[in-house]
Design a binder for these strands. Structure first.
Lengths: 285, 285
DNA sequence: ACACGTTACGGCAACCGTAAGGATT
DNA sequence: AATCCTTACGGTTGCCGTAACGTGT
């Protein structure tokens, strides 16, 4: 079985571009670095690194091995940190991490008995990291009930239809649902479950609502709407500032208050006395 | 950093239910097993296993650590097998493995520079094994274009409508497509893409063709058709013997020669000089 | 008494660092 | 000559297996 210390050294050589630098960085002698890499190569029966006076580089085999090496070290590190009651990695999908979570994190920081890191990324990335043990707990905009995880609804986050200030609807207190027929919404992050939401709140009208671009982030959507490129449906808290300062208008829909459930997700089989359990309990009060 | 050998031993203890059994299974002395587990526990600063005369069990911490351990060992094993140039595991979905592949494997055996194993299973099982690095190359009846794999069409395999010998169509050279309307085909393996095939070759007629049972294997379908339970659509080469010996009849459809594409699938990022690359090249000539 | 896991201990191999040795520029 | 990696070598450590030792049934 592969020796992880050697893999760590291998990665150091790759990242630092040479054996000497890797030695400095890992605290080993550079002779030990040579031995680590050589033994790793022997155990795999291939050369991983092209030795070179001007920067060592990966062989083809090294390139194939690299992702495995990174995965192993990541997972190993996380496993080591598992019972370290002093560390927590929180994952959040972009919108939540940017617009919703910060004040809660600030409150948590006061009561927390441990340090924590936050990783923000699109929904699929965070799910992947949750599965890869790179994050301990995730706050997400949807959950597909996959096996091995405990998900519970944290809170409902209000959604808002936003339009440019010069838009005909901009000065109306609210509009009837029918007006949305045939509209095209500017899309933000992919895979955030917008389709399902539209269906749920707008019923048959949803079929005639299109999503016209995938701008990748709510920030991009806000700018695009400001620029008059179209309208969109976003989390209310993401546009509080813009609405107050008059750069965007939030328009209500008569009789409907669309919202999005946010989920707290942990791996199943969690212990009581872990940082992630504390964080979950904190969020759910 | 965690020592993977100790993790392997830990898993052996968990799976075998005791230190002694784990020792037998891993080839270590049971003293060494004790040391491995103890050192692993020390490195994580928790107890993982409850020692017990009647079967050792996991502690709560052990249960939490278990998935990490499995993940690490799986990834490590995969990485080790990456450059093993003397081992090849070929996966094949049942029909292909049973009826199509054997003569090719025989030819390959003559030229092959490595030993190989064959794993036969239903389509989903083989995909799973491909993703888990349990098979290196797979021959499948469909492919859903998932990321990280290279798939190419190997060959087209003719399909045949089969009927019992006493069936009204049995003595006809061919039948018009329309006759299939309202028929029910006996289904074999699940998830073999029969629905798409019917649509492709039979067009609108396909909508009125049903699939009445899921018998699980082509062998079962053949027997069922022989017994007069219905008709079916199968790979021609699977019924050559039965048609020759008069136990089944293969009926042509006027103007249509249905077939099924077979795919050779490897992981992406493959090197040139691997057994699976050789096998793929061999199949594609 | 038996089956299980732990501890003690001696031999062996692995590993590390120092220092000298090639190779390339 | 300078920089890089490899090799040689000795001291230390860690690891394994044998065997003796607790412990619970």
């Amino acid at each position: 079985m592969i020796n992880l210390e050697r893999v760590v050294t291998f990665l150091a050589v790759v990242n630092r571009g040479g054996f000497r630098e890797a030695a400095k960085h890992t605290g080993l002698s550079q002779s030990a670095v040579t031995q680590h890499v050589r033994r790793l190569e022997e155990s795999l029966s291939v050369n991983l690194i092209v030795r070179n006076n001007a920067g060592s580089t990966l062989t083809e085999e090294g390139k194939v091995f690299l992702p495995y090496a990174e995965n192993l070290v990541r997972t190993g590190s996380r496993a080591c940190a598992l019972f370290d009651t002093n560390r927590l990695v929180i994952g959040a999908s972009s919108n939540i991490g940017i617009y919703v979570l910060p004040p809660h994190l600030r409150r948590f920081k006061k009561t927390a008995t441990c340090n924590f890191d936050v990783v923000i990324g699109d929904n699929l990335t965070i799910v992947k990291k949750l599965e890869n043990f790179e994050v301990d707990v995730a706050i997400m905009e949807w959950w597909d009930q996959r096996e091995g995880f405990d998900a519970c609804v944290w809170r409902s986050e209000a959604l808002a239809v936003i339009v440019p200030v010069e838009h005909p609807w901009a000065k109306l207190a609210s509009i009837p649902l029918d007006w949305l027929k045939g509209e095209k919404l500017l899309g933000g992050e992919t895979s955030s479950g917008t389709g399902r939401l539209l269906q749920h709140f707008f019923g048959s009208v949803a079929d005639s609502i299109g999503v016209s671009m995938q701008l990748g982030s709510t920030e991009a959507v806000k700018r695009a709407v400001q620029a008059g490129l179209g309208i969109s449906l976003v989390i209310s808290s993401s546009v509080v500032d813009e609405c107050e300062s008059g750069r965007l208008r939030s328009v209500k829909i008569e009789g409907i208050t669309p919202y999005k459930n946010l989920y707290v997700i942990c791996r199943g089989n969690m212990l009581e006395n872990t940082p992630s359990a504390h964080f979950k309990k904190f969020l759910l009060q």
